[in-house]
């Protein structure tokens, strides 16, 4: 996904003189050619994330459309107050693009893990969040975000599904188990594991690469009384949105994702997927347990 981001951003910088890119050393080498062509609009501030976001705010105040890029923990967590004040409070907007989602850099340890990024962005008002599930989804999402007016967060990962899915982020029914069936909503790269997990269960599966704004109308149209959320970041991040969307209906919600506990283990992203129960086997365990009461025959 990082490569498609670099290619698309390089093209956008050439196509639209309103576009600017702000970096804090991360990926600077990949943008060297773009920086030579557009030295005033490709700005690498060095390892200075507060300045990176502050500069984006200033650029936006002059009418430019900044794309801001770094590792997720440094882009969202380290410079959070700059996102809140230098963008939102100023009425300025930017497109944030992170790499290093959740545990992509598992062997690097806690400093490079950022499962809480979407939760933090979710404390801000009116942001669009894109979590592509495949590199092929990135160009359209990035172009759409840059062409829009508001702020957006694109969360790129080394994990992905087998194939890209188009669409505007509305819930896309991937597997239909019929009216009233439990609905599993998978966000971004967890789709393939989720589909495999419920292959022989009567569960419908819907996909989205846009958890914010969440497709509330689509959820209301597809959901019965059981909803399962599977998100590749902090478990429960979208639980409040689902609960609010279904507030007028009796329903049960299982919200799966990355756990809060610091594991203090290295290994690979696949190891962490398993440890957080987000592989097909782990998801199947959680979903089966959640649905077990509902599957209990009446009268027992």
């Amino acid at each position: 996904m990082r490569e498609t981001f670099v290619d698309t951003t390089t093209a956008l910088l050439a196509e639209d003189p309103r576009t600017a890119l702000v970096l804090a050393d991360i990926s600077a080498a990949a943008f060297a050619a773009a920086a030579r062509r557009h030295p005033d609009r490709v700005l690498n501030v060095g390892i200075r994330e507060q300045l990176m976001v502050g500069v984006a705010g200033g650029l936006a105040l002059t009418g430019l459309r900044p794309i801001v890029h770094s590792y997720a923990p440094f882009l969202v967590e380290r410079a959070y107050e700059q996102l809140k004040l230098d963008l939102d409070h100023q009425g300025a907007s930017a497109v944030l693009v992170s790499v290093g989602a959740s545990y992509d850099r598992a062997a690097a340890g806690r400093t490079h893990l950022a499962p809480a990024d979407v939760s933090l962005i979710d404390t801000l008002h009116d942001w669009t969040v894109h979590v592509p599930g495949h590199p092929g989804e990135v160009p359209a999402l990035l172009r759409g975000a840059v062409a829009a007016e508001g702020s957006a967060y694109l969360r790129l990962s080394t994990l992905h599904n087998d194939r890209p899915r188009a669409g505007d982020g509305s819930l896309d029914l991937v597997r239909d188990a019929g009216p009233g069936a439990p609905l599993l909503v998978a966000v971004g790269p967890v789709l393939d594991a989720a589909v495999a997990a419920v292959a022989d269960l009567g569960v419908s599966v819907a996909y989205t690469h846009r958890p914010r704004p969440f497709d509330v109308a689509g959820l209301r149209a597809l959901a019965g009384t059981e909803v399962i959320l599977v998100e590749p970041y902090l478990a429960g991040t979208s639980a409040r949105v689902v609960s609010a969307a279904l507030a007028d209906r009796p329903h049960r919600l299982l919200a799966l994702g990355v756990g809060r506990q610091e594991l203090r283990r290295y290994g690979s992203p696949d190891d962490h997927t398993r440890w957080h129960g987000l592989d097909a086997a782990g998801l199947r365990r959680s979903v089966s347990g959640f649905l077990a009461p509902a599957l209990t025959p009446a009268g027992r």
Partner: peptide, 21 residues
């Protein structure tokens, strides 16, 4: 909140320059 103006000012100065202002 202290410490935000200079970063915004740097961005503003860069944005003006990039637009030939």
């Amino acid at each position: 909140s202290l410490g935000h103006g200079l970063g915004l000012g740097v961005g503003t100065a860069l944005g003006l320059r990039a637009q030939g202002l």
